[in-house]
Amino acid sequence: MASSFKIRKIAELLDARVVCGEQFVDNEINYAFASDLMSDVLTLESEQLVLITGLTNMQTVRTAEMADINCVVFVRGKKVTPEMIEVADENNTVLIECQYSMFRTIGVLFESGVNPIY
């Protein structure tokens, strides 16, 4: 049985900043997936997923839109651009900036009980 986490909790665990979609932080996520390759993200079938990535460009936000991903965590201190926020806003996507490395981010979430997809 998958345990679910509020997006707010994810941000707290990672000591990270919600930069877009603050009004959706009480929505729940069931799984996490980490990748800088959007092609892999586009093959996933899971729902209520948080994507963890170091890839900061429009394609990340577009991929989230097409794949019905409602929360993206950008790791390694990467900054989200105003254009990305515009598209994310339109699609009710929560964007989070995190200072941790991808390894640490994943480690913290995994240890806290966030489920992998596979």
């Binding site: 800088d36 390759l37 959007m38 092609s39 892999d40 586009l42 890839l55 394609q59 990340t60």
Partner: peptide, 8 residues
């Protein structure tokens, strides 16, 4: 850009 892995 996050693509180009031969999966498209």
């Amino acid at each position: 850009m996050g693509f180009g892995a031969g999966m498209g």
